[in-house]
Design a protein around this nucleic acid. Structure first.
Lengths: 149, 149
DNA sequence: CATAAATATTTGTATGCACAAGTAATGTAT
DNA sequence: ATACATTACTTGTGCATACAAATATTTATG
């Protein structure tokens, strides 16, 4: 459905303005697909993002700064995210002995299993994106890369 | 910059997954351009969205339900948004005499001036999108429409 | 006409996020 | 060695958001 119809607006003054509004609107749409998906699995999007980063280094630990730099949403408060993951038994935290300002975060077995569970169901989530062909998905992705510069 | 490099990930298992992450990441990027822009003008993105909807009907009033249906972010709590706008003197609220369940919201002169101020500066904001050509902006916008179905 | 259903908005609450200030450990310069 | 700056993480606070329940008004039904 055209963005003009979605928000009941006649037309946009220019294509960039249309793109801006469309990106904001589409983001809400994406969140409405993604949030319930993760909620059903007992995670938030960002908690899952951290778990995936931890798996990338497993069994090596990852420190907070590195987690932050690899996150899709850089504004997250890593301290409190990790608190939640530890509370749920998906991660552990230890002070790094080489540099005691740093915290080593590791994935647990339980966290690993939860990630596997997410992976198993991921195709369900991606189905929502199949209105675009694979070529179109790739094209849009590349244009978004270009947009951000 | 490629999304893989932004989040330090080697590569994605498939193009749809890449698109999903790219949309989420790009949304954060967009917010980082948009939020400070509106903050400098003493508004939030959503407050501006409501003001623009009110202008669309001015001098006729708009009721809450219609505002909600036209908003880019449908999850907003319209009651509390309008409270803020009235507090700032940008809008007024009256009970509709024809149907007293409904609230008529109108733009004030002050609100109109604030919108004009935003319009005057809008080109600054849109500059951030000029990494894409006008054709590309249009293309991406159309693909996003298609994605949502 | 009384009652139930539907509509439109409001309020409560728990959670999440943004931003700023705070703490603790380490590095650097004199 | 001491003082200052930097780094890495933590905490506090106010504001925004999501979701559910509540209220008030109108419409529909027997």
């Amino acid at each position: 459905m055209r963005i003009e119809d979605e928000i009941h607006q006649k037309e946009f003054t220019d294509d960039y303005r249309r793109l801006l509004v469309n990106l904001l609107f589409t983001n809400n749409w994406v969140n409405q697909q993604v949030m319930p998906f993760f909620k059903r699995l007992g995670l938030t999007l960002q908690q899952h993002n951290v778990l995936a980063i931890l798996r990338g280094q497993h069994p090596e630990p990852v420190c907070f700064g590195d987690i932050q730099n690899r996150m899709v949403d850089r504004n997250s408060n890593v301290t409190r995210l990790i608190d939640k993951l530890i509370e749920k038994g998906f991660a552990t935290r230890d002070i790094c002995q080489a540099n005691r300002r740093m915290i080593e975060v590791r994935l647990t077995e339980k966290g690993m299993k939860k990630l596997q569970e997410v992976d198993d169901r991921f195709p369900e989530l991606l189905e929502h994106f199949h209105n675009l062909s694979q070529e179109e998905a790739l094209l849009v992705s590349n244009k978004l890369d270009k947009l951000r510069g």
